[in-house]
Design a protein around this nucleic acid. Structure first.
Lengths: 112, 112
DNA sequence: CTCATATACAACCATTTGGTTGTATATTAC
DNA sequence: GTAATATACAACCAAATGGTTGTATATGAG
């Protein structure tokens, strides 16, 4: 399992992008179906430009990509980036598990 | 597996808290060992107050807790919250998988 | 008791964020 | 060709963020 390393800045962008309910909803929608920027704009109570900025933030984070189809832009969710974030979090859980295992060793020593 | 639901605001806080390299490092340290606020402050090139604010942000997000020990505060990472975020992300991957499976069904229909 | 240590928190400031409106450009429809 | 549609992007603004310094409080050491 080859995993290209993300820079701190990239990781910041991904978490920052996910720290907004509208953007999380955009990710959901673009993972489940093909949507245009204007489909998204229609879904939220804010200006087209505001939605466009959310999409741009998600794109910079690698959570969505846009492809041109005529004058339209199709926005697609990027499950790979989601998976990458999960792997990051798994690393944190591993750190915890290692601590627990060290604690177990310590307790085993105590009962010698 | 009972999972209490997190509000949008809570989820925002967790992702926001993780969108900073210093805070991610604090999470790592507090998951792997017991550390005091001043241990953390000594580890970064910024004021004590700044580190304290980072810890407060992590605490508000449920990523760490503080317990008093005399005049010291011990900061502990909260693996449960990490796990909760992972579950959230798994839900996104599920959305993607459902889409793929719908696509497979469609293709199966086509080849009838 | 006094002094040093560990933490908390307020006030302040520069930068970033998340929205707005307005304008420009490319593509499609008629 | 002209009009309508879809998108992009700049300029602007209020609020939030991430740092600072300064002050207050509680605990531990001598």
């Amino acid at each position: 399992m080859v995993v290209y390393e993300l820079s701190d800045e990239q990781v910041n962008k991904v978490f920052r992008a996910l720290a907004d309910a509208t953007r999380r909803d955009i990710v959901r929608r673009t993972l489940s179906a093909e949507v245009r920027v204007s489909d998204l704009a229609a879904a939220y109570d804010m200006s087209f430009a505001a939605v466009q900025k959310h999409v741009a933030a998600l794109e910079a984070a690698g959570l969505v990509t846009k492809i041109a189809r005529g004058r339209e832009r199709i926005v697609r969710g990027q499950p790979d980036t989601i998976r990458h974030v999960q792997e990051l979090l798994t690393a944190y859980e591993d750190i915890w598990r290692q601590r627990i295992s060290r604690l177990d060793d310590f307790l085993a020593d105590e009962t010698d």
